[in-house]
């Protein structure tokens, strides 16, 4: 039977109310803005929630929601000074537990972060995960992520930021060219098993994205960095399109679609083509394309342009030729 779904936001609002009350109980007097900053939400949501809390309570002995059975606030402070002071409290004493799924999401997230310099203390990490599990109202659902070893390059990147010194390394770009780069690290990003450094590149005098596993011989220089994180606006997407990008038509098996979604420009059409889907992707050059397509054998085929097909064919043929030598 179809279930008329309540809008999701009511559930989220409830979680928020149940969290806001114990926070307010711990703070005798607090400004709306302080609470908004702490929870990372709009001040108006705080005001709305406080108004709701202030008129809520329990039915009580008389089942009539008498004054003593309701929360109350210092209304003048609230209306005139935007300050929250709880003057009567009911039913709630403490913060709520995590649900099994909520705890599982954070535990799996922590496992994923095990390559970061921040998580090198494995015993502390295990303690933290155990606390989450114990703080859940049900057994955390089983979602797990392979724990990675601490990454030496990331450790050095962190040191560079801490000491405000430029990082120098050999970088092999996807065209296969090796260059020495000096970089002000701005942000470390990742997508699944792939880690990237975004930074100000002094060679290119622009923000560039570097794959951590293509960085060789990283060292800290004595040069001060020119830019800190926050001084440079980084695009939200890791892979930005450029006007010079090449458009390539491909056939892709539907199951492989998520694997290349970063390359499909917004608004691209997907047209059935036999068992596959025909669409277009954008790549900065064919060197990257041949690696992408060869790594998805039987799942992606370049349709056009002919030159792109040829580059992929040559790449595979050269690899096969090594077996026939």
């Amino acid at each position: 039977m179809a279930r008329a779904k309540q809008p999701l936001h009511a559930r989220d609002k409830l979680a928020f109310l149940l969290s806001l009350v114990p926070y307010l109980m711990d703070h005798d007097r607090v400004s709306v803005q302080t609470v908004a900053d702490h929870f990372g939400v709009d001040a108006e949501l705080i005001r709305e929630s406080v108004r709701l809390i202030a008129i809520s309570g329990i039915p009580g002995e008389t089942a009539a929601y008498q004054h003593d059975d309701l929360f109350d606030i210092a209304w003048d402070d609230f209306e005139d000074n935007d300050q929250i002071v709880l003057t009567n409290m009911v039913a709630i004493d403490e913060s709520p537990r995590f649900s099994g799924r909520e705890a599982a999401a954070l535990i799996a997230g922590l496992q994923y972060l095990s390559a970061l310099p921040e998580t090198v203390d494995r015993a502390a990490l295990a303690t933290l995960m155990a606390k989450l599990a114990r703080g859940a109202s049900a057994l955390p659902t089983q979602v797990a992520v392979e724990t990675a070893e601490a990454d030496a390059t990331l450790e050095l990147v962190r040191e560079a930021v801490e000491e405000e010194r430029q990082l120098q390394f050999d970088y092999l770009n996807s065209r296969g060219e090796l260059e020495s780069r000096r970089v002000d690290p701005l942000r470390v990003e990742s997508v699944d098993a792939d880690w990237y450094l975004r930074g100000w590149c002094h060679l290119r005098e622009a923000v560039r994205t570097f794959r951590i596993d293509r960085i060789g011989n990283p060292v800290l220089t004595d040069e001060r960095i020119s830019f800190h994180a926050g001084e440079v606006t980084l695009p939200d997407t890791l892979f930005e399109g450029s006007a010079d990008d090449l458009s390539v038509t491909i056939d892709i098996s539907p199951a492989a679609l998520p694997l290349i979604s970063d390359y499909i420009p917004a608004g691209a059409k997907l047209v059935p083509s036999g068992d596959a889907l025909r669409t277009s992707i954008r790549v900065s050059h064919y060197h990257g394309l041949k690696r992408l397509v060869a790594g998805l054998p039987g799942m992606v085929t370049v349709v056009e342009p002919e030159e792109a097909r040829q580059v992929v064919a040559d790449w595979a043929a050269a690899a096969l030729a090594r077996y026939n030598d």
Binding site: D12, L20, S95, E102, V188
Partner: peptide
């Protein structure tokens, strides 16, 4: 789920340390 878990975590009123290095893991 993780967004909700973080709301509940904030109920405890702890201010998080600002990390030295900016991260955007996914």
């Amino acid at each position: 789920e993780s967004r909700r878990a973080l709301i509940k975590l904030r109920a405890l009123g702890i201010e998080a340390d600002e990390p030295v290095l900016a991260y955007a893991p996914r």
